[in-house]
Amino acid sequence: MAKAAVVILAGTDGHENLGRLVNGLETAREFAETDGDEIELIFDGAGTQWVPELEDEDSDHHELYRTVREDTSVCDYCSGAFGVEDAVADAGVRVLDDHDGHPSIRSLVDDGYEVITF
């Protein structure tokens, strides 16, 4: 049994960031599909900008995102800072504000999660 927190920090600009997003989603899906594993997928920083795009059914990566959506959360502070707060609220994605408005990475580590960033 493994516990992993996949944190998407890559923004929406550039081919390399798209690659980081897809690799992060694929990694999260692999954990989600493995019996006994636990996964947290967190969109943080510029990564919060992906949520409205991935929620769009016409997105090339919507179906991949849907496979891990129930394990998804978004940084509260960063969703506001990057202008996607309303889209995140409309999507109904869980918002984290454990540490000064941000997700607590320390808590994840303390709970035994391996933190992987993309």
Rank of each mutant, 00 (worst) to 15 (best):
V6W: 00
V7P: 02
I8P: 08
G11I: 09
T12D: 02
T12V: 15
T12K: 10
T12E: 05
G14T: 04
H15R: 11
E16I: 03
L18S: 00
G19S: 12
R20I: 02
L21K: 06
N23W: 02
G24Q: 05
L25H: 06
E26A: 11
E26S: 09
E26F: 04
R29Q: 13
R29A: 12
R29E: 12
E30N: 13
E30M: 14
F31E: 01
F31M: 10
A32T: 00
E33Y: 03
E33H: 11
E33F: 04
D35N: 14
D35Q: 14
G36V: 08
D37S: 11
E38S: 13
E38I: 01
I39P: 01
I39W: 01
I39Q: 00
I39A: 01
E40F: 01
I42D: 06
G45L: 14
A46N: 11
A46V: 02
P52V: 09
P52Y: 08
L54D: 05
L54W: 07
D56T: 08
D58T: 15
S59T: 06
D60K: 13
H61Y: 15
L64I: 05
T67V: 03
R69H: 14
R69W: 12
E70H: 11
E70R: 14
T72P: 07
T72E: 08
T72Q: 09
V74I: 09
D76A: 09
G80Y: 09
G83H: 11
G83F: 05
V84Y: 06
D86Y: 04
A89K: 15
A89T: 15
D90R: 13
G92T: 08
V93L: 13
L96W: 02
D97T: 10
D98W: 02
D98M: 06
D98T: 10
D100Q: 15
D100N: 14
G101S: 11
P103Y: 09
S104D: 10
I105D: 05
I105E: 09
L108H: 00
V109K: 10
D110R: 10
D110C: 00
